[in-house]
Design a protein around this nucleic acid. Structure first.
Lengths: 320, 320
DNA sequence: CCTGCTATTGTCAATATTGACATTTTGGAT
DNA sequence: ATCCAAAATGTCAATATTGACAATAGCAGG
């Protein structure tokens, strides 16, 4: 598989790095394990002779945008996160040239993949008109407004539409690159993921994302408000359903759809959050905290904390 | 908070980029939202005048290693994933100099954070002796063998031990950087995570990690073998417990500890995996596939696929 | 070797979850 | 405005999950 990665000036560092490291790792692992996978022939190209990343790194380039027929042109994000900076950037001469180059690449039979804010560059080319796409979650409203002819599916992480692929926020670059590897070799994609993807044990970031998703749906938001107000009384699905004004089944479905969790499981997440907060700030023991989050004793709370956070109470205090 | 990021020649691109982007994003968001958070004063330093990343990017440096007292020295990974390359790299003159610099930094009252393979550099300095640490999962055996005086907790994503912090594989850099932001401002850390962390909707990579974890525990592995062999008959916890030779409660506990899932939830993951595979390879309809994975009709299967994968059947076919 | 504490396991019962099915609502096409 | 199909919702029952508790095992310290 032949790929060119288009590095525009001010390219988003993590995005560009993630893409390159996925393919480099894929090639290394394929060679090491003698997998029958054709190598990824990768080159980084730009629109000007010199490209600096958003962090100021100098990127060595292999020439201009000329992806092979049937090959891939990959467009990582620019390092602009807010409309006030993004929109002017889209008017830069090099970016306008890139937009033309994307059209030419398509004309020459290449596939195109763009992630995060890179999807705006692709959309500017008109190539996404009449196609489906996704983009980074916080710019979805701007994207929909600016490119009404694009079928935006902002609920999806990655969308393939004909010869075009789009992916979502920041680390969506990683997912997109893994998707491309998977086209060539699903086994290799699995291996690369094992080496590059953070353990699935809960990192701090996982809870933050659930919080955002929870507020995206009115029923889920109501549930969370009800839950936060009665952690100490313990869980009751009957009460929860009454509080949100829907059946127990519907509440369970909605939480499953939005968060991928059962009502009790999400309630437990909130318990853990509260318990961790109290552990760190109040100086109370797990036995004292347990009744404050609806458990009769500290043993059950400790077991839950270990399961949800992958570490024990003493470690939790140490990390603070 | 003052931080210096130590970029050694051949530094792992995604790791370095992720660290820099977390703090840059934190500063931008703090300014934009007028948060009362002191800025992160960040600089990138090296051991030689010129540093190239593993991907060949040129990194602008701000001078030598001289972290402020009470500040942080952050050590991202080197871009070597296998012992054959890593061990010689640890003997490089610039890496030996870095090891000395780490000791001097500690002597000057700085805190040190290292991620992934960066933890080997920190361990070489001797500073981790008698402390607890974590490292990337696939090099944990080598780490334990080479640094027996370090209390390796390879089950944790991030470990703080006194003034030293260590984190795990690849994207552990991101977690470590977010942890540092959180020390200064938990609210800001949450915001940065929202912008930089991939949506919690299931990406392909998430299932691969569960697969790895499942094989790490004999009970879980037995359960998975049993499950894979009877997807079409549907779930039965009684049968599963008999098959693995433990009580239902113990099986549930173990799956919770290792995977963070209930037995049925994991069974459903396997159903989804099989269903997706059949959708892509067999040309059968969801109604035809449903009984093959233990459902009476395609409606239930479609609903599960939408919940677990965040997209419908038609989209699943499109992505292939 | 003994004691004490913690972790692990099994049991039990109350409640939660899920799959199936029926009904209602919604949206698109005509 | 009407019709039809799909989606959403509610109901129900079988099974799963969880919290509490008791028993057992393991480990560390004296």
């Amino acid at each position: 598989m032949k790929l060119q990665v288009l590095a525009l000036d001010g390219v988003f560092d993590t995005g560009l790095s993630a893409i390159l490291d996925v393919f480099t790792t894929a090639n290394e692992l394929a060679a090491m394990l003698s997998l029958n996978a054709p190598p990824f022939e990768l080159s980084v190209v730009g629109m000007r002779k010199k490209v600096l990343t958003a962090q100021g790194f100098s990127v060595p380039l292999s020439g201009g945008v000329r992806p092979a027929e049937g090959g891939w042109l990959v467009v990582p994000a620019l390092g602009y996160k807010v409309p006030d900076l993004l929109l002017p950037a889209l008017e830069r001469p090099d970016v306008r040239d890139a937009i033309v180059a994307l059209r030419q690449a398509r004309g020459g039979g290449a596939n195109i993949a763009a992630a995060c804010i890179g999807t705006f560059v692709l959309a500017e080319s008109g190539l996404l008109d009449g196609q489906k796409a996704t983009t980074t979650w916080w710019l979805a409203p701007l994207f929909r407004q600016r490119y009404p002819a694009v079928g935006l599916e902002d609920g999806s992480m990655l969308v393939k539409s004909g010869p075009l692929v789009t992916a979502g926020a920041a680390l969506g670059h990683l997912d997109m690159a893994l998707w491309l590897v998977r086209q060539a070799s699903p086994e290799l994609a699995g291996l690369v993921a094992r080496y590059l993807i953070v353990d699935s044990r809960p990192a701090q970031s996982a809870y933050v994302i659930s919080d955002h998703l929870a507020h995206a749906d009115p029923l889920v938001e109501k549930f969370e408000r009800w839950a936060r107000g009665r952690l100490s009384e313990g869980f009751s699905l009957d009460h929860a359903a009454d509080a949100v004004g829907a059946s127990k089944r519907t509440l369970a479905r909605r939480l499953g759809q939005v968060l991928g969790k059962t009502p009790l499981s999400y309630f437990q997440d909130l318990r853990v959050e509260r318990a961790v907060h109290l552990l760190k700030t109040s100086g109370k023991t797990p036995d004292e905290i347990a009744p404050l989050v609806g458990y009769a004793d500290g043993v059950t709370l400790r077991a839950l904390l270990r399961q949800k956070l992958g570490r024990g109470v003493r470690e939790l205090r140490m990390v603070e």
